[in-house]
Simulated assay, not measured.
Amino acid sequence: MIITSKEMHLEDGPAKKSIRRRRQNFIVNFPSLKNGYSMECDGVLESAYCIWLEHDARVVKYYTQPHTFTWIDNGQRYRYTPDFLVVLEHGDSYFTEVKYDFSKQRESRLAKLESFHALCDQEGWHFKLLDQKRIIGSTMFHTLQALYSRLRPIDAQQQEYFFHYLVS
Protein backbone atom coordinates (compact mmCIF):
# COMPACT_ATOMS: atom_id res chain seq x y z
CA MET A 1 0.00 0.00 0.00
CA ILE A 2 1.12 3.49 -0.81
CA ILE A 3 0.01 6.40 1.36
CA THR A 4 -0.34 9.72 -0.42
CA SER A 5 -1.79 11.71 2.49
CA LYS A 6 -0.42 14.99 3.72
CA GLU A 7 0.79 15.63 7.27
CA MET A 8 -1.86 15.41 9.99
CA HIS A 9 -2.78 18.73 11.68
CA LEU A 10 -5.11 17.77 14.52
CA GLU A 11 -5.56 21.18 16.14
CA ASP A 12 -6.91 22.68 12.90
CA GLY A 13 -10.34 21.12 13.51
CA PRO A 14 -12.19 18.48 11.52
CA ALA A 15 -10.43 17.46 8.31
CA LYS A 16 -13.67 17.50 6.35
CA LYS A 17 -16.69 19.70 6.71
CA SER A 18 -19.87 17.84 7.56
CA ILE A 19 -22.99 18.16 5.49
CA ARG A 20 -26.53 17.12 6.31
CA ARG A 21 -27.41 13.96 4.40
CA ARG A 22 -30.40 12.24 5.99
CA ARG A 23 -32.76 12.93 8.83
CA GLN A 24 -30.57 11.10 11.41
CA ASN A 25 -27.39 12.78 10.21
CA PHE A 26 -26.94 16.33 11.40
CA ILE A 27 -24.19 18.25 13.13
CA VAL A 28 -24.11 17.92 16.91
CA ASN A 29 -21.73 20.11 18.90
CA PHE A 30 -20.77 17.97 21.87
CA PRO A 31 -19.47 20.01 24.85
CA SER A 32 -16.26 18.13 25.67
CA LEU A 33 -14.77 18.68 29.11
CA LYS A 34 -11.63 16.69 28.24
CA ASN A 35 -10.88 18.78 25.19
CA GLY A 36 -12.10 22.08 26.61
CA TYR A 37 -14.27 22.95 23.61
CA SER A 38 -17.22 21.63 21.63
CA MET A 39 -16.57 18.69 19.34
CA GLU A 40 -18.34 18.77 15.98
CA CYS A 41 -19.95 15.35 15.49
CA ASP A 42 -21.75 14.01 12.43
CA GLY A 43 -24.83 12.98 14.35
CA VAL A 44 -26.26 11.78 17.61
CA LEU A 45 -24.50 8.40 17.61
CA GLU A 46 -21.07 10.02 17.31
CA SER A 47 -21.91 12.42 20.13
CA ALA A 48 -23.07 9.43 22.21
CA TYR A 49 -19.64 7.86 21.64
CA CYS A 50 -18.12 11.08 23.05
CA ILE A 51 -19.82 10.32 26.37
CA TRP A 52 -17.87 7.04 26.60
CA LEU A 53 -14.66 8.88 25.73
CA GLU A 54 -15.31 11.54 28.38
CA HIS A 55 -15.72 8.87 31.08
CA ASP A 56 -12.83 6.61 30.02
CA ALA A 57 -9.94 7.48 32.35
CA ARG A 58 -7.41 6.19 29.80
CA VAL A 59 -8.52 8.77 27.19
CA VAL A 60 -6.48 11.96 27.32
CA LYS A 61 -7.96 13.71 24.29
CA TYR A 62 -9.93 12.90 21.16
CA TYR A 63 -10.50 14.45 17.76
CA THR A 64 -13.46 14.23 15.39
CA GLN A 65 -12.78 13.78 11.67
CA PRO A 66 -9.04 13.98 12.45
CA HIS A 67 -7.48 13.50 9.02
CA THR A 68 -8.31 12.48 5.49
CA PHE A 69 -6.13 9.60 4.33
CA THR A 70 -5.48 8.80 0.70
CA TRP A 71 -3.84 5.51 -0.26
CA ILE A 72 -3.57 2.94 -3.00
CA ASP A 73 -4.28 -0.72 -2.29
CA ASN A 74 -3.93 -3.27 -5.12
CA GLY A 75 -4.33 -0.57 -7.73
CA GLN A 76 -7.48 0.84 -6.09
CA ARG A 77 -7.28 4.44 -4.82
CA TYR A 78 -9.05 5.12 -1.53
CA ARG A 79 -9.86 8.31 0.35
CA TYR A 80 -11.19 8.06 3.89
CA THR A 81 -11.65 10.19 7.01
CA PRO A 82 -12.12 8.23 10.26
CA ASP A 83 -14.77 9.53 12.64
CA PHE A 84 -12.38 9.78 15.61
CA LEU A 85 -8.77 9.69 16.68
CA VAL A 86 -8.60 8.80 20.37
CA VAL A 87 -5.37 9.58 22.24
CA LEU A 88 -4.71 7.48 25.31
CA GLU A 89 -2.34 7.91 28.21
CA HIS A 90 1.25 6.83 27.53
CA GLY A 91 0.96 8.02 23.90
CA ASP A 92 -1.14 5.15 22.53
CA SER A 93 -4.00 6.02 20.17
CA TYR A 94 -6.58 4.52 17.84
CA PHE A 95 -8.96 5.51 15.05
CA THR A 96 -12.68 4.75 15.31
CA GLU A 97 -15.47 4.45 12.75
CA VAL A 98 -19.01 4.80 14.11
CA LYS A 99 -22.04 3.49 12.21
CA TYR A 100 -25.57 2.55 13.23
CA ASP A 101 -25.25 -0.88 11.59
CA PHE A 102 -22.24 -2.07 9.60
CA SER A 103 -24.24 -4.91 8.05
CA LYS A 104 -26.29 -2.31 6.18
CA GLN A 105 -23.30 -0.58 4.59
CA ARG A 106 -22.60 -0.75 0.85
CA GLU A 107 -19.97 -3.26 -0.28
CA SER A 108 -17.74 -0.43 -1.51
CA ARG A 109 -17.83 1.21 1.95
CA LEU A 110 -16.99 -2.07 3.67
CA ALA A 111 -14.11 -2.64 1.22
CA LYS A 112 -12.76 0.82 2.03
CA LEU A 113 -12.96 0.14 5.78
CA GLU A 114 -11.26 -3.23 5.33
CA SER A 115 -8.48 -1.63 3.29
CA PHE A 116 -8.06 1.13 5.89
CA HIS A 117 -7.83 -1.53 8.59
CA ALA A 118 -5.05 -3.21 6.59
CA LEU A 119 -3.31 0.16 6.19
CA CYS A 120 -3.51 0.67 9.97
CA ASP A 121 -1.99 -2.77 10.56
CA GLN A 122 0.81 -1.94 8.10
CA GLU A 123 1.55 1.38 9.82
CA GLY A 124 1.25 0.03 13.39
CA TRP A 125 -1.97 1.97 14.07
CA HIS A 126 -5.13 0.66 15.71
CA PHE A 127 -8.64 0.86 14.22
CA LYS A 128 -12.01 0.11 15.83
CA LEU A 129 -15.51 -0.24 14.40
CA LEU A 130 -18.38 0.62 16.76
CA ASP A 131 -22.08 0.27 16.06
CA GLN A 132 -25.22 1.56 17.76
CA LYS A 133 -25.62 -1.52 19.93
CA ARG A 134 -22.09 -1.26 21.35
CA ILE A 135 -22.37 2.49 21.95
CA ILE A 136 -25.87 3.02 23.35
CA GLY A 137 -27.11 -0.52 23.88
CA SER A 138 -26.14 -0.90 27.52
CA THR A 139 -27.73 0.45 30.67
CA MET A 140 -24.31 1.74 31.66
CA PHE A 141 -24.44 4.19 28.74
CA HIS A 142 -27.63 5.76 30.07
CA THR A 143 -26.04 6.16 33.51
CA LEU A 144 -22.94 7.79 32.01
CA GLN A 145 -25.16 10.03 29.92
CA ALA A 146 -27.07 11.26 32.98
CA LEU A 147 -23.84 11.78 34.93
CA TYR A 148 -22.24 13.73 32.09
CA SER A 149 -25.23 16.04 31.85
CA ARG A 150 -24.55 17.08 35.45
CA LEU A 151 -20.78 17.55 35.23
CA ARG A 152 -20.70 21.10 33.96
CA PRO A 153 -22.76 24.20 34.63
CA ILE A 154 -25.11 24.84 31.73
CA ASP A 155 -28.06 27.11 31.21
CA ALA A 156 -31.65 25.97 30.67
CA GLN A 157 -31.43 26.23 26.86
CA GLN A 158 -28.30 24.06 26.72
CA GLN A 159 -29.91 21.51 29.05
CA GLU A 160 -33.02 21.35 26.85
CA TYR A 161 -30.83 20.88 23.75
CA PHE A 162 -28.81 18.14 25.45
CA PHE A 163 -31.90 16.18 26.53
CA HIS A 164 -33.65 16.65 23.21
CA TYR A 165 -30.81 15.20 21.13
CA LEU A 166 -29.09 12.77 23.45
CA VAL A 167 -31.75 11.44 25.77
CA SER A 168 -34.41 10.70 23.17
Rank of each mutant, 00 (worst) to 15 (best):
M1L: 10
S5G: 04
S5Q: 03
K6A: 11
H9L: 11
E11N: 14
D12G: 05
A15D: 07
K17W: 12
S18D: 05
R20W: 13
R21D: 10
N25I: 15
P31C: 00
G36S: 01
S38W: 07
G43T: 00
A48E: 02
A48K: 10
A48Y: 04
A48T: 02
Y49H: 10
I51Q: 00
I51V: 10
R58E: 11
R58P: 06
K61A: 08
Y63S: 04
Q65P: 01
T68N: 05
T70K: 12
T70H: 11
W71Q: 00
D73E: 13
N74A: 12
Y78D: 03
F84E: 00
L85W: 02
H90N: 11
G91V: 05
G91N: 04
D92I: 04
T96W: 08
E97S: 06
K99Y: 04
R106H: 13
L110M: 15
K112H: 06
K112T: 15
L113G: 06
L113H: 10
E114T: 15
E114C: 09
S115C: 03
H117P: 06
W125E: 11
H126V: 07
D131L: 07
K133M: 13
R134H: 07
G137L: 02
G137F: 02
R152W: 09
I154R: 15
A156F: 07
E160A: 14
Y161G: 02
F162T: 02
F163R: 11
Y165V: 07
S168P: 09
